[in-house]
Amino acid sequence: MNPRTPDQRRDADQRGREGEAEAAMFLAQAGWRIVAERVKTKAGEIDLIARKPGLIAFVEVKWRARAAQLGDAIDERRLARVAAAVEMVWQDYATQGEDIRIDVILLAPGSKPTHIENAWMPFG
């Protein structure tokens, strides 16, 4: 894999921010309240944290240039990284006994967002 140039990293970061904003709007329209964005931990970053009554969702957002690429956007390794980050901060957000889960939102131009609820089911 070729290393990215600074311009490529900046462009990817910008697309990621735009994707996260689109995902936040999608969640808000579905009745969620966004309580945090881009939460950084030692284990990694959580893109969005959203709340509904009795539920906190830690949301990984993946954007791809083509919808056909979305199938490879998320895997167990990436979800495990998100889960490790969630483990570090969930108690700061689920302060009233809410259930917590990890969701994924997949985005591509010209296609409707795909919301995968409770995407992290660790293999034991």
Rank of each mutant, 00 (worst) to 15 (best):
E117R: 15
H115Q: 01
P3L: 06
A57R: 14
E98A: 07
V104C: 15
L27P: 11
E45Y: 00
W90N: 02
R51C: 11
R78Q: 15
V35M: 13
E20P: 10
R78D: 06
T5C: 00
I100F: 02
A65R: 05
T41Y: 12
R4H: 08
R101F: 03
E37P: 10
E18H: 14
E98V: 06
G71I: 03
I74P: 14
Q29I: 04
I46H: 14
R4G: 07
D75G: 07
A65K: 08
G16N: 04
A36Y: 04
V82F: 02
R66K: 09
D75R: 01
I34R: 05
A65T: 10
L106R: 05
A94M: 07
S111G: 10
E76C: 03
K112A: 12
G19S: 01
F26D: 13
Q14R: 15
V35S: 08
V39R: 14
I105A: 00
G124H: 11
A73N: 04
A84K: 13
A57L: 14
S111T: 15
R78H: 12
Y93V: 08
K62G: 00
I34Y: 10
R38K: 05
V35R: 15
E76T: 13
T41M: 11
G124I: 10
V39Q: 11
A94V: 02
V39E: 12
V86K: 14
A23T: 00
A24S: 14
P122Y: 00
V61D: 00
A119W: 01
R78P: 11
E18L: 15
M88N: 05
R17C: 06
A43N: 07
I105K: 00
M121V: 09
A43P: 11
V89Y: 07
E20Q: 14
L55D: 02
